[in-house]
Amino acid sequence: MKNVTIRIPAALREFAGGMAELELQAVTAGTALEKLAERFPLLSQRIVDQDGAVRAYVNIFVGETNIRDSSGLETRLADGDIVTIIPAVAGG
């Protein structure tokens, strides 16, 4: 298990008890999202679909790297990694 920080975007904070970031332990990006889902099911719905795939309008970055350009949900985490969730927003 690795200790990582999850950053919640403003657009989704209302589904995460208002939290901007939280820490949890996980081995991969996928297990981090599963742990997040246990605590905040409504938040999880907005990030992944019923099959657990990341939605087309959300990006998950581990550090600077998009997990889509790495091993997707299998992307391995290291201690101290920052996992950032960035959804599409449209405001202008």
Binding site: A11, A56, P87, A90, G91
Partner: peptide, 24 residues
């Protein structure tokens, strides 16, 4: 980056959403 837009029920805010004035 975003292959498709979110469906309306999951779209975070639109023109009516709040925004800090200096942010844009």
């Amino acid at each position: 980056l975003y292959p498709q837009p979110p469906p309306p029920e999951l779209a975070p805010g639109c023109g009516e959403a709040g925004v800090l004035g200096v942010l844009p």
